[in-house]
Design a binder for these strands. Structure first.
Lengths: 187, 187
DNA sequence: CCTCTCATGTAAGACGTTACATGATTCA
DNA sequence: TGAATCATGTAACGTCTTACATGAGAGG
């Protein structure tokens, strides 16, 4: 369960409450992660019960009181173990556009080009934001900065790939898109 | 639910049984996806009940009989609707190594370098395989080929990034790794 | 003989997302 | 005045993974 470990990791920097954990998480990961409150709050609760974190309630007039969480020695121990353990499993890229992309041969070329253009625009906007964040990240440590760098590189790579693909699609004739499955390596 | 649509997409090429669907899926997606039988078989069952696919049982001596699934017109309709709908949500990259990476500042440099080296080796091996597959993919349609291309580019990019990071880590002194969180953009 | 690939499936549990409810403050 | 941000949380639902069970054939 990686969310727990990520939370414990962030609490090494400083005490935090749920709302901030969410924000920091997304930014620490070069904006390649999403996480939601449905994961954070229940996890904090459970970890408190397990003695990995402690809660300090900071009452404020009106708005809900902030709940500041701190990591305990037990929490640090769990985190350290995880940090040095070797990571099981490989990289997974999940993308609703890319999933459609492989099947665009079964759709109309016009619609396909429209969707590709939308993606290009979207990644161009994101790229701007990532470059902005990168400037602010210059004074972070190596690891956080490198992670931001990776996010940037990924964004740039996909943009270029999209543009190249767009060109190839635009220039293609229908015959270029076989609707028969050619076996790749096996069978 | 994207698995269903992906299955329907593959059935456009030809009739298939569960085991093959799994293999093809992984290869169609530039080896960036994983999928398991716990998703495939129940989905095929449900889709048959819903009339999106039909089953033809091909008995064979001894081994379990193959269950060949074909897409129905209703299935094609559902798929087409999905294909032209605009994709909700953005790219997600989940990687157990990368998750640890951002926190390596809290671990030992030696162990960190060891883990990075392991990753480099692993991606080098994968790169070989991907290049192999790419050669075989030359006669696929644009979209499948481009997807394979993306897998390759991603692999190459990460490898370079890992090597650059490794260098920077090796050359770093402890002072380069702040253990205080500097706020990025907000707060 | 042993391991790998082919082939199907289920059950339990872990994990993640979405939608909802609540309400103050800040800024345009 | 209305939207965005800050802030906490839960319930229901969906999805995904893991582990198990079964068994034949091929190839080293």
């Amino acid at each position: 369960m990686s969310v727990r470990h990520a939370i414990l990791g962030l609490l090494h920097y400083q005490d935090m409450h749920g709302y901030r954990i969410k924000r920091h998480m997304e930014q620490h990961f070069g904006n390649m992660w999403s996480i939601n409150y449905g994961q954070i709050y229940p996890n904090l609760k459970k970890m408190e019960e397990e003695g990995l974190v402690t809660k300090k309630e900071v009452a404020r007039s009106g708005t809900p009181s902030r709940k500041l969480y701190s990591i305990t020695p037990a929490g640090k121990e769990v985190f350290s173990q995880w940090l040095v353990s070797d990571p099981q499993g490989t990289m997974l890229l999940r993308d609703p556009f890319l999933l459609r992309f492989v099947f665009f041969g079964f759709g109309s070329k016009d619609r396909t080009l429209g969707l590709v253009d939308e993606q290009i625009r979207s990644y161009e906007t994101q790229l701007e934001k990532r470059r902005e964040n990168m400037r602010r990240r210059q004074r972070q440590g190596i690891y956080v900065r490198q992670m931001g760098e990776l996010g940037l590189l990924l964004n740039e790579m996909i943009l270029e790939w999209l543009k190249r693909s767009r060109k190839e699609i635009a220039e293609s004739s229908d015959g270029d898109i076989p609707t028969e499955l050619m076996e790749l390596s096996l069978d």
